[in-house]
Design a protein around this nucleic acid. Structure first.
Length: 500
RNA sequence: GGUUGGGUGGCCGAGUGGCUAGGCAGAGGUCUGCAAAACCUCGUACGGCGGUUCGAAUCCGCUCCCAACCUCCA
């Protein structure tokens, strides 16, 4: 097993060597979506990033338990202290459906989209509503430890006390505890039931009209937003586990509070490595449903949006995302997507050519052999360096140039050891299909199906015309196919085709 | 205002104290019946001002600008 994987830990703000708690096993928790409306592209980026991380960990030989929750209760809109409404509840009211229908509907949509992006389902996908007893237990533990207080049937985390006794608040987000404390005098007025502005609800008493409610020792109500992740990660991964991930925008307060809840309930720190994906931008600003700066995945696929000139396939979009590092913001523009589309095709075509190559079985390894071996090693090294997909792709592209040169006869397979060619094939196959999980969308023939037979026939007829120097017929075929969206590629080995 | 992260060639986007990122677009060439594809070559980019250094886009200071979080968001 490779033991050189480095992960950037948000908690320490450093790249650290990754050593799992239990050798050979990795426990990873990723904050999933709140299912109150259609998935948006930003979620797709985050979960695609973690899918690649999940897959690469498995590629390295780890047994990974990947837990990604679905939040279907407790996530409030607006200020929790005023007349906030649960997101799911609100949608249920607006659409005149059961809250569970809302959660199911959008969870289904989310799963469909994850499948479109060819991501693997997590090992466990727990729902907040399915873990109310666990959450009540955790609230009780926090109360018993003195880090929470009850007010009118709601339970609040006593952040102030937690800070005073443990000093363990604010590390993840870089918040200065003094700043949080100093706020107290100014904001004391509008705190409602909370004693301090930094306190947060871990159990909320439900208003009479509230649709989602469970009985608890304190009131009929529902759990606070941050609680489900603490409770469910503890349940399925233990009080301490390896990796906790999520979008950058969850760092504060969600993740900070999660840590506080873990500490407050069991004096354990939860995750050892925190990973945060950065935001997907459009027009240089965060994609956000609330201010309209957004495009849905479907709009992106169909091109039905003023932000794009045409539709882009899911794999092109995924490739586009992989071309940036997960910790960097990524600016979605039409021009960049067009570039990604061509790059994606170049990569996949290169892979196809490579996989079809047969080694002649003679010759002796030359400089080329060393170069290719170095590229193979480099792909792995880049991925080990905090999952650097853009760099790994860049290395694959360097290899594509070699592949194309071999194909064009500018380089010779005789300079490559058969084993090296086999390794290169494996590397491409593993990274493209198993780690990046890109799929072939080209539709180019592999000798199966009626279209392939037809194309073989058409290409054959055109070959005859060309042999007879009947350029009229030959060009007519080429132009007509072009108009139909099929591109012919002539080379010394013959003619192949691909969808434009 | 506080916190965090950024400002890289026409676009997107990596990265490092001195050695080519990569993709796309552009220029020239090879190949081709002509193209397309492919291959080769090229453009000498790192917000601004100082400093450290033999050498900085990469380190430090200052400054300008941008984004995210601090209220819900992956």
């Amino acid at each position: 097993m490779e033991n050189t994987l480095k992960i950037y830990n948000s908690l320490t703000r450093e790249k650290e060597s990754f050593t799992p708690l239990t050798e050979g096993y990795v426990g990873m928790y990723v904050c999933g979506p709140t299912v109150y409306s259609d998935v948006h592209l930003g979620n797709c980026r985050t979960f695609t990033s973690f899918d690649v991380i999940y897959r690469y960990l498995m590629y390295l030989g780890y047994k990974v338990r990947y837990v990604r929750n679905i939040t279907d209760v407790g996530h409030l809109e607006g200020d929790a202290d005023t007349n906030a409404e649960d997101k799911i509840s609100k949608k249920a009211r607006l659409e005149a459906l059961e809250p569970m229908e809302i959660a199911q509907k959008y969870a289904n949509g989310f799963h469909d989209m994850m499948r479109v992006f060819n991501t693997l389902p997590p090992s466990i996908e727990p729902r907040a509503t399915g873990h109310i007893p666990e959450q009540i237990k955790m609230v009780q533990d926090i109360l018993d430890n003195g880090f929470a207080y009850v007010a009118n049937g709601s339970v609040y985390f006593d952040t102030l006390k937690f800070i005073e006794e443990t000093k363990a608040y604010g590390q993840l987000s870089g918040r200065k505890v003094e700043d949080l404390l100093s706020e107290s005098r100014d904001n004391l007025k509008n705190q409602g039931e909370k004693r301090h502005p930094a306190d947060f609800a871990i159990w909320m008493k439900a208003a009479p009209e509230h649709l989602m409610r469970w009985s608890s020792p304190w009131s009929e109500g529902f759990p606070g937003w941050h609680l489900e992740c603490s409770a469910m990660s503890t349940k399925y991964l233990g009080e301490t586990f390896d990796i906790h991930g999520g979008g950058n925008d969850l760092k504060f307060p969600h993740h900070e509070n999660e840590i506080a809840q873990n500490m407050g309930s069991c004096n354990c720190s939860g995750a050892r490595y925190w990973m945060h994906t950065n935001m997907l931008l459009m027009n240089g600003r965060k994609m956000s449903k609330s201010d309209g700066n957004t495009i849905t995945p479907t709009q992106l696929f169909t091109g039905d949006s003023p932000h794009v000139s045409k539709g882009y396939s899911p794999m092109v979009v995924k490739f586009f995302m992989l071309q940036s590092h997960y910790r960097s913001t990524l600016d979605l523009t039409d021009e960049a997507l067009q570039a990604a589309e061509k790059g994606y095709k170049r990569l996949m075509e290169g892979n196809k050519l490579l996989q079809q190559m047969a080694h002649p079985g003679n010759g002796s390894p030359a400089a080329l052999d060393e170069e290719v071996k170095a590229l193979i090693a480099q792909v792995h090294a880049e991925m080990n360096d905090d999952f650097n997909t853009p760099k790994a792709l860049a290395v694959l592209f360097e290899a594509v140039t070699k592949i194309n040169s071999l194909n064009a006869g500018h380089l010779s397979l005789n300079d490559l050891a058969p084993a090296t060619l086999a390794q290169l094939k494996e590397t491409f196959s593993h990274f493209i299909y198993d780690v990046f999980a890109l799929t072939d969308e080209e539709g180019a023939g592999e000798g199966a199906g009626p279209i392939d037979s037809l194309m073989d026939l058409i290409i054959d007829i055109r070959q005859e015309a060309r042999a007879n120097k009947d350029w009229g017929t030959s060009d007519k075929i080429r132009d007509a196919l072009q108009a139909a969206g099929i591109v012919l590629k002539d080379s010394k080995e013959g003619t192949s085709w691909a969808k434009a």
